[in-house]
Design a protein around this nucleic acid. Sequence first.
DNA 1: GCAGTAATAT
DNA 2: CATATTACTG
Length: 310
Amino acid sequence: MREEDSNWFAKWEEELPSPEELMPLSQTLITPDLALAFDIRNPPPNHNHQSTPPRPQTTAHSSQPNSSAEFDSVELVGSGGGGDGGVAGAGGGVGSDEPARTLKRPRLVWTPQLHKRFVDAVAHLGIKNAVPKTIMQLMSVDGLTRENVASHLQKYRLYLKRMQGISSNGSGGVGGSNVSVDPTDHLFASSPVPAHFLHPGRPNTDHFLPFMPVATMQQHHQMAAVVGSGPGPHHHQQLQQQFRHFGTSPPNGQFEHSFIRQSQQQVQRMGAPVHISNGSVASPLYVEDSESPRVGNGRKVLTLFPTGDD
DNA sequence: GCAGTAATAT
DNA sequence: CATATTACTG
């Protein structure tokens, strides 16, 4: 009888989760081979010319506090259509690359995993604090820019609004005899919606949610894959990776280990009680979109998310 | 400057 | 088609 459970999110709303305090969003390390394959190229002994800033981060003045070690790296494949897989053979051979000044960031591919992190961040931030910048910081996905999140957030909000209109319809409308499931929901449909995201000032109409276990998330390494567009056969692949040291001495010398979140069973219940009245297929599971984001037009998409666990 | 949205571009 | 980008507004 603790209303706290019900209002746990209320606390979030009132309390501002300091980015510094944010717990290390779980993310395991990338397998060494993977990391090596991608780009853990030891920088050449040559002096790094400052003329070519390795991190043209859009949000430059984003002083990232020592927020744990984050290895989340968005994999940005150069816009060359990724002639090769990029995964293979990198081994440092590609090392010598001079980032052109006019390098644009390739498209970011929102994988279900990445999106899940996004949703989790939003859920934990609360609707009020769920602003692009905060979300981006909470996600701590390296390479993610505010624009990325903003753009996605825009779409996500539209999706939520659409969802609120229909509550008896699960996203996994695989039955076929379903009314309007926008094909654009595919991405969003693969991630469990925390069950709120509705209007905060709205009285609970019919919310039956046993519990919201979405308190902690455990995920493996996150990588956002970016695909290049264009029939360009071979192009430089730009792999951007950034890792932070977590063992750096804290500014105050005061560093305490946060509570290590245990791998709590993530029993996620579908927010929408899929009520199948007909004898149709009632599979409340999320659509397993194992299909790679294929694009029909000679566009190569590299979707590498070995994170099978969701 | 940042956030929200719609329209548009790639 | 999924994102990115832009223009406009608050």
